[in-house]
């Protein structure tokens, strides 16, 4: 189901539970790209805000001049939606970024042994 431009991309699952720091996402995404030496990124978004409203939170990310291709897909808001992404992209390079406190999502990620990082930790501490 993916476009040719998504092949060989690095996959980031973005769980947007709460407001989070835009700059932090940009920095994190940059870090992931440089660390893994990849030139394409697919953002898989889980958010309760629905399509296309969730994109409001990605404006800064999409407007920053990244030197690579970026694809954004929306999957829904539930744990089942997260499981769907993981199953479909299990064999791809992947990391999850979780904003706010999302206990059940973290449980799923851990269950599937998906690396994840928490966003806005400092903001919520």
């Amino acid at each position: 189901m993916c476009l040719a431009i998504e092949r060989g991309a690095y996959h980031v699952i973005l769980i947007l539970n709460y407001d989070y720091l835009n700059d932090e996402v940009i920095n994190k995404v940059n870090e992931v790209m440089i660390h893994n030496n990849v030139r394409k990124l697919v953002l898989h978004v889980i958010s309760s805000e629905g399509r296309p409203t969730y994109l409001e939170k990605l404006r800064t990310v999409l407007s920053s001049t990244f030197p690579y291709s970026l694809v954004v897909r929306y999957w829904g808001s539930t744990v089942d939606d997260l499981v769907k992404i993981i199953k479909l992209y299990r064999n791809e390079s992947m990391i999850a970024l979780v904003s706010g406190d999302a206990q059940e999502f973290k449980g799923v990620l851990e269950g599937f042994s998906i690396n994840y990082e928490l966003l806005g930790v400092r903001a919520y501490a």
Partner: peptide, 10 residues
């Protein structure tokens, strides 16, 4: 996908 940004490599 909702958004595709074609980067320099593509």
């Amino acid at each position: 996908p909702d958004y595709v940004l074609v980067g320099p490599n593509d």
